[in-house]
Nucleic acid binder design. Structure first.
Length: 432
RNA sequence: GGAGAGGUGGCUGAGCGGCCGAAAGCACCCGCCUUGAAAGCGGGCCCCGUCGAAAGGCGGGCGGGGGUUCGAAUCCCUCCCUCUCCGCCA
């Protein structure tokens, strides 16, 4: 019967700062969820004191009955009275339960508040470029597209993928498969050896609670692959298992920050993306990714966001891949995120920059959903941690970028220096 | 898949119808002692909600949900999870 801290935003805080919250959610262009929630919150607030008064009376009278009974007195009349009281309580309880269930459902649909530093805008075209690293590789020939290169080199086989699993699946073979594996190892080594992340190898399917904890559910269920006959979902990103690793935990401040990294395949239906990125392997139902996540105190989370972004950027820099950083504007921000940077890698074959990583600070949004807290050193009180995560990187798209940026006139592809130790010193991919 | 055992505070673990939000220990915090520390001693210390300016009051929470009862951590039902043994299997 207790009000388990439900969702996302701190409702009390929302209520006490309504105008500000309205204004900030308005920047996202999403106010509906909030307005649906407010009358329910009101109802709850009038119901609770009423109920508590009755329960208090019941408690006192029950105790009295016990005492009288022990002394051998007659208590039947009193019992009847309390029975009546209990009926009243039960009615109010079920009313409250109903209100709270609807409040909870409504609360889960309200997105996070954007941080003040998030640029205002409507959509992707309004995302400012924060910085650009490297330069577009120059070549004296018409750059080919990765699917063209991949098929010619015999390392990417979308037809085989379709045969086995259908559209938007691919089979990597030979050096293609090895390249993918080399990249995973390279990325994990970098994050664990140099950036202090603890490597985790989690389950690739998780329970519903975990999906709610990080915000994929209930809103995006249709994008997820659900396991038939089970209440399990294939992970859409390692963010889900990594963040939920600390679900329901009470940490101490000295434990923070905590940094995890994991490789997992990621499974997404990508509903609503029909016709987008149909060519090649840019958008797949299954792709590999190395993820980095951090848990930290609220005061430090924006410093951690910059660091985490740097950790992801370092992968691209070591690989010598030209990219840029954009800050997502309020209209393009993901549901759970307070602030997000995207890394966009240059793809000469597409003649555009394409998202290869997304680095976000969720502040307390996920922590509140997943109930991840810590005890503050100063006053010994508990508070929600802040959670962050980023791709470092999407491996399939890294393969795409390498193929396209490192391609040679003869159709072969040079291997980035940093990757050669992972490929027995191989410096060039040629037809196999 | 079969057979048992169990899920209680940050942790370990007692309690098995009212005096239990819960013994004890550990951890943690404050103080005394000490040159400092440890040990020892004294005190404090669960979470959430709700009312309140605050002090504080009140309510709820002993895996989740439901039931019995004047009253449930304690009894009943149900679901989930963990552990042990057997079987099967990479």
């Amino acid at each position: 019967m207790c009000y388990h801290p439900p969702a996302m935003l701190d409702l009390k805080h929302v209520y006490e700062h309504l105008d500000e919250v309205r204004e900030r959610l308005g920047r996202r262009g999403n106010l509906g969820g909030l307005e649906a929630l407010l009358p329910l919150y009101e109802q709850r607030r009038t119901l609770i004191p009423k109920l508590e008064g009755l329960r208090s009376r019941r408690k006192v009278q029950s105790e009295a009955i016990g005492k009288v009974q022990k002394a051998g007195g007659d208590v039947e009349a009193e019992k009847a009275k309390v029975r009546e009281l209990a009926g009243e309580i039960a009615r109010l309880e079920s009313e409250l339960q109903d209100v709270e269930a609807r409040l909870h459902a409504a609360a889960l649909l309200v997105p996070n508040l954007p941080h003040e530093s998030v640029p205002k805008g409507m959509g992707p075209e309004d995302n400012p470029v924060v910085r650009v690293w490297g330069e577009k590789p120059t070549c004296n020939f018409e750059p080919r597209d990765h699917s063209d290169l991949g098929e010619t080199l015999g390392i990417l086989d979308p037809k085989a993928g379709a045969k086995l699993a259908g559209a938007r699946f691919v089979v990597s073979r030979g050096l293609g498969a090895r390249l993918e594996r080399a990249l995973i190892n390279f990325m994990l080594d970098l994050q664990t050896r140099e950036h202090g992340y603890l490597e985790i190898l989690p389950p690739f399917m998780v329970k519903r609670d975990s999906m709610i904890g990080t915000g994929q559910l209930p809103k995006f269920e249709e994008d997820m692959f659900k396991v038939e006959g089970w209440d399990h979902f294939l992970v859409p990103t390692a963010e889900v298992p990594l963040t939920n690793l600390l679900r329901e935990e009470l940490l101490s401040e000295e434990d923070l920050p905590i940094k995890y990294t994991a490789y997992t395949p990621c499974f997404r239906k990508e509903a609503g993306s029909y016709g987008k990125d149909v060519k090649g392997i840019i958008r797949q139902h299954q792709f590999n990714k190395v993820e980095i996540v951090r848990f930290c105190t609220p005061e430090t989370s924006y410093v951690h966001l910059e660091e985490l972004l740097g950790n992801a950027e370092e992968v691209l820099r070591r690989l010598g891949l030209h990219y840029r950083v954009v800050a997502l504007c309020t209209g393009d921000l993901g549901f759970s995120s307070a602030k997000t940077y995207d890394l966009e890698v240059w793809l000469p074959g597409q003649n555009e920059y394409k998202e290869i990583s997304s680095c976000s600070n969720f502040e307390a949004f996920q922590a509140r959903r997943a109930n991840i807290r810590y005890r503050r050193k100063a006053d010994r009180k508990t508070d929600f941690v802040h959670t962050l995560n980023g791709s470092a990187l999407a491996v399939g798209r890294t393969v795409v970028a390498i193929l396209e940026q490192y391609q040679q006139a003869d159709g072969s592809v040079r291997v980035p220096e940093a990757l050669r130790p992972y490929l027995d010193g191989l410096d060039r991919i040629t037809r196999c």
